[in-house]
Amino acid sequence: MRVGTFLALYNSDSLRKSIVMHELSIAQNIIEIIQQRIPEQEWKQVTAVRVKIGAVAGIVPDSLKFSFQAITAESALCNARLITEHIPFRVHCRTCNSTTENEDGFAMCGDCESTDIQVLSGTELHVVEIELEETEQVV
């Protein structure tokens, strides 16, 4: 690329579709994972999606639920509820060998304050499981 030829502006439709505010974008990713796992004709039966959110994942569970609801409201996924599970920020200390938790994301042992720690949990953002209602019996 030559110096000065810089105005390659990205205004494409795919961009408009895919880049949105934070929790909305996360909700879209969750829906894509459902799409990959559940055939579209069974979407009406999806009653819940369980998501693990680490304490320091940078996600506000209520905003994510709101976003998920907003996107799915008019779709076949309208019966799906987003259930979030909070995962604490937990560190293991290599100095005193204890395992402690803090909600601030301090990379520090809660007992001896050593920073020689290993993060055990709290950064995850995972779809764990999808719940489906059994197909109604034909009477």
């Binding site: 996360i26 990713n29 969750i30 994972i33 796992r37 559940i38 009653t47 998501v51 995850e124 953002l125 995972h126 779809v127 764990v128 499981e129 999808i130 719940e131 489906l132 209602e133 059994e134």
Partner: peptide, 10 residues
Amino acid sequence: MSIITVERKV
């Protein structure tokens, strides 16, 4: 009710 295990990073 059936549960499908996913375990995938969002």
